[in-house]
Design a protein around this nucleic acid. Sequence first.
DNA 1: ATTGATCCTGACCGTATGGTCAAGTTCAGG
DNA 2: CCTGAACTTGACCATACGGTCAGGATCAAT
Lengths: 211, 211
Amino acid sequence: MPQASRSNSKKERRQESETLILSAAEKVFAEAGFGGATMQLIADVAGLPKANLHYYFPTKEALYRQVVQNIFQIWLQAADTFDNADGPAEGIGAYIDAKMEISRRHPAGSKVWASEVMHRAPVIQDYLETTLMEWTEGRAAIIRRWIAEGRMAPVNPNHLLYMLWATTQHYADFGHQIETLNGGAPLSDGQWEEAKQSVKEIILRGIGVTS
Amino acid sequence: MPQASRSNSKKERRQESETLILSAAEKVFAEAGFGGATMQLIADVAGLPKANLHYYFPTKEALYRQVVQNIFQIWLQAADTFDNADGPAEGIGAYIDAKMEISRRHPAGSKVWASEVMHRAPVIQDYLETTLMEWTEGRAAIIRRWIAEGRMAPVNPNHLLYMLWATTQHYADFGHQIETLNGGAPLSDGQWEEAKQSVKEIILRGIGVTS
DNA sequence: ATTGATCCTGACCGTATGGTCAAGTTCAGG
DNA sequence: CCTGAACTTGACCATACGGTCAGGATCAAT
């Protein structure tokens, strides 16, 4: 009988190897960019021989594509906070919290995403045109409703969303700059909290919401 | 006698060649990243043989370094608007205008800068630690003074600056995403104006300044 | 017209990279 | 215990890359 209970079934080991490789790849792609990353370095970080990587992912591009898609999923997940909200203060506030948390927990992923978009999205252009487009229009509609209901100032929804993305992701993508300006030390727990509060405070007040 | 009046003196031609190469390099580095860019492609874009590039710039890294330094100069130039201002509305408003204009006019440069910082600033770390650090502290002091004078809300100056950088540079670095969400078309003149106004409106209101 | 310095470039070189492969190892299922 | 499929990996290959160089072209100064 198949040993479903054993911790290392064949399927599970495959899953583990893929996760290990994807995690190493995310780091290396974030630090070196797609062009600067090498399969050898990813293999070293993962602690596997290079040929093994090509067993699980046929090409460097396939591996990269998987990394980017994983990030995109996390990115979209933060959307829930927006939908289930009662109003702008709660919805946008929670969205900022969620995205700041992503910047803090997945800085490498954020950088890979930024790099991909900066280079004209060679592998996820279709996602931008479909999923992201729909997501954006949906949230813009919610914002417009809030405005119509007089619950926030009449601002352009798209530019508000861009500001939310820009500001929150900045803490991951430009984390090194922030760290340098912080005297070379990563932001402490308290400083992260302060960052989150600052962003929320300025933006919420900026759209006429008194939290 | 040296032909100082002739349009193509030796010095001028050297200058022209260097500018041509730097311009091509900026484009290619922005589109492919440092690792993905090739000297051959830069040469093709510049319309010169590859060996010629190595005559003016000994290595790929030296060329890249020059590109990054040029961007940094433009970046710092926008600071003037901050210093010569009477108060937060004028100072920060003008700074946003200036940085939005940079995003519009130098999108490639902005991307190169972003890429450099994202990759832990391998070639301009010293600039971050000296020039940028001083610049930031100087502007933070101005903001603190404005706050003390009761001319704006008491916000953390550093996080305000990060927000200004993030939001304005987003329009260059993530221009492709914005373009896609705009139906595939670059922002029109009017849309750029709207973007600028939106950013200024939300941030100025967000820091308690009624422009 | 001569000359020396600067500029230009095709051909070349060593290396590192993405990817392949064949021979071996492991292991679930019978 | 056998067997075949899934997995692992050291050795290898073709290519593309950054960089070099020798020889020629250009041109300001005399």
